[in-house]
Each structure stands twice: as C-alpha cells, then as structure tokens.
C-alpha cells in the first residue's frame, strides 16, 4: 500500500461480488457490527468482524465534500481492519441516498406484518425485520 496521501487518514475499501464499490481515504469510519456500531480511526487494533445490517458512515473523505459524511447501506458481511486499512466484504452495498424511503418503509411494514411459525421462521423474521428497520433508518437519516 503506497501511502502517498495526506497523513492522518485511513483507507476504506468496500468490495461486493460484482465490483469494488468504494475505495477512498478518509478520517474515520463507523461500521455496523453485528452487535452495534463501532467507530474506526487511525491506529485501530487489527480485527476481523461480522457486520449486521446498517449504515457504514465514512467521514472526512479526502477529495470529497469537506466535512460531509458518505453513508452506505450494507446487509451483513465482514470487515477486516489492519494497518489503517479497512476492507468491507459484503454482498450488496447501496449508497444511502439512493434508497427510496417510501419503499423501504413499505418493505418494513410487509416484513413486520408477516406471520412466522416455528423457531427458525421466527428467527428469520426477526433478522429480516432488523434489516428492514436499518434500511428505513438509513434512508430517513439522509433525507433530513
């Protein structure tokens, strides 16, 4: 990794099966881990973690809009953090501003209204509900 950029920044890469959807340098990143958000700054201890559904928030992006925050919605995946290098591996990454709040809301209502019978189905329903809720939250936050 050639470090020819401004000091104090970290590299954030998001890869999906189809393409590398983001490769940028920034000041900090907030990741939606499976058990809650975690902020990553410079010099973070290396770790590998599982992601839940939620927003990845990239702040202080270089060459970006100054203090603007870029927000990307992911539904599960993995993250590897090492040497000021964050690699997110996920099956789908949607820029939050591209999510339609109305359709996210209706998707949530559909999942919440569905009936699940049996332990496995109930677990699956909760997972989907959680993901749908995170999607709604991500879409509404960017609208504000």
């Amino acid at each position: 990794m050639a470090d020819n950029s401004a000091p104090g920044t970290i590299r954030c890469v998001i890869v999906t099966p189809e393409t590398t959807s983001l490769d940028t340098r920034c000041r900090s990143v907030t990741l939606p881990l499976f058990d809650g958000s975690r902020g990553i700054g410079r010099g973070h201890a290396p770790f590998i973690g599982r992601l839940g559904a939620g927003e990845i928030r990239v702040s202080g992006e270089q060459g970006g809009a100054g203090d603007g925050v870029r927000s990307i919605f992911v539904e599960g995946g993995f993250v590897e953090v090492a040497h000021d290098d964050i690699t997110v591996i996920t099956q789908q990454a949607i820029p939050a501003e591209r999510i339609d709040p109305a359709s996210a809301r209706s998707e949530y209502d559909k999942v919440a209204g569905s009936r699940a019978v049996g332990d496995e189905a109930i677990d699956a329903k909760f997972r989907r509900q959680e993901a749908a809720r995170a999607l709604v939250r991500a879409s509404e936050r960017t609208r504000r």
Binding site: D35, P46, F47, I48, G49, R50, H83
Partner: peptide, 8 residues
Amino acid sequence: SDEYDFHP
C-alpha cells in the same frame, strides 16, 4: 505481528 481480534 497483527494478531487479529475476532468479533464474534
């Protein structure tokens, strides 16, 4: 030297 932590 990295010694990754794993979550979970």
